[in-house]
Amino acid sequence: MSLCKWIIRIVGVLYLFALALLLIGTFGLFGQERDPLAGVFLMPLGMPWVLWLNGLPDEILPWLAAMAPLLNLAILTLLCRYFHGGRTDK
């Protein structure tokens, strides 16, 4: 299994973990208090795209910020396929 595949998996797990923390903190699940900074762990995973969201309507900002790490995952996957000849199982 290649290093590239491991990096994609690690970033994917970190994204799911940060998304879970966002949902738990935002909606107060499992008895947690609501926390306005619950999405802080999604910010570094979504860089640099979250910096370009300035000026968009406030209604869609949380959704776009939560989905920005998916763009990084897609880029990583495409780079791995490109450098490994279309396969990520090398």
Rank of each mutant, 00 (worst) to 15 (best):
M1E: 14
M1G: 13
S2H: 12
S2R: 12
S2N: 13
L3V: 12
L3W: 14
L3F: 15
K5Y: 11
K5A: 11
K5V: 06
I7R: 08
I7L: 15
I8Q: 11
I8F: 06
I10W: 05
I10L: 15
I10E: 09
V11A: 10
V11C: 11
G12D: 10
V13I: 15
Y15L: 01
L16N: 02
F17N: 02
A18C: 04
A18G: 01
L19T: 03
L19N: 00
A20P: 01
L21N: 06
L23R: 04
L23T: 06
L23G: 02
I24C: 02
G25I: 02
F27A: 04
G28L: 06
G28A: 07
L29I: 13
L29W: 15
L29Y: 12
F30I: 09
F30M: 12
G31P: 04
E33G: 15
D35G: 03
D35M: 04
F41Q: 09
F41H: 06
M43R: 10
M43F: 07
L45C: 01
L45N: 03
G46L: 00
G46A: 01
G46Q: 00
G46S: 06
M47V: 08
M47F: 15
P48D: 13
P48R: 12
V50E: 08
L51Y: 15
L53R: 03
L53Q: 09
N54Q: 15
G55R: 06
L56E: 11
P57A: 08
I60Y: 09
I60R: 03
I60W: 13
L61T: 08
P62G: 03
W63A: 13
L64N: 05
A66C: 06
M67F: 12
A68I: 05
A68Q: 01
L70W: 02
L70H: 04
L71F: 08
L71I: 13
L73I: 12
A74H: 04
I75E: 05
I75T: 07
L78G: 07
L79C: 14
R81F: 03
F83N: 12
F83K: 10
F83M: 10
F83I: 11
H84D: 14
H84P: 01
G85K: 09
G85Q: 07
G86M: 07
G86C: 06
R87M: 09
R87V: 10
D89F: 12
